[in-house]
Design a protein around this nucleic acid. Structure first.
Lengths: 103, 103
DNA sequence: GACGTGTATGCCTTGACAAGCATATGTCGC
DNA sequence: GCGACATATGCTTGTCAAGGCATACACGTC
């Protein structure tokens, strides 16, 4: 299931769509104008995002409103968690390095 | 540059390679046996990871040792950051819901 | 210098995916 | 019911990536 989210996010256009949805939910035509992508292409990308669980669609058949579903992103965050300590260690080492230089 | 990282991480085999490298650096043959993937395939995936900056290679030409480079992952984390508040809000809402139920 | 080991690369086939275009579906106002 | 609008889907084409296989390259050993 996370595989679907990774595959969905590997496409820059779909990440841009999520970026647009970050501020507030949008209709399809709003996203079309904001990104300058054709309407069929936008609908196809939204389908992928929908089937991966990254967005939800709500409302009537015309003027469907898409919004972000954070659940798969939280999964992503959990995947990333074990690696997070790696760059924290790097920052710690850098901090110690700078501290040592001060003396 | 982040596009490269996203593309690299979209493949499950490459994510598995990173998972193996999480504990400690490995040589190619170690990863081959741990993942049960053929050696050429492993080398090709490692090349993608290398060119996306996700891993570093160190050591002699034979027995090359691969290790994680956390920098692109930190970029990923920064990309994820604005979305993080979305599921925090969800958790807050859930918390308020449970609180309300207690009374 | 020949050999064995570890790693990388080239070639090939297959499958997936993105975008463009045309078209279908679904819904509203009249 | 019929246009007008918003959204979705089918079809086709080009591109690209993954894996299998054979093979090249680099290094150490004798």
């Amino acid at each position: 299931m996370q595989d679907l989210a990774w595959a969905a996010l590997s496409d820059p256009t779909r990440r841009a769509l999520l970026g647009v949805l970050l501020t507030r939910p949008h209709s399809v035509s709003e996203m079309v104008t904001k990104l300058g992508v054709s309407q069929p292409t936008t609908s196809k990308h939204l389908r992928v995002l929908r089937e991966s669980g990254l967005v939800q669609v709500t409302g009537d058949a015309q003027r469907r409103i898409y919004s972000i579903d954070a659940v798969p992103l939280a999964d992503l965050d959990r995947w990333l968690a074990p690696y997070r300590k790696l760059w924290n260690e790097r920052l710690d080492a850098l901090g110690r390095h700078l501290d040592a230089k001060e003396h």
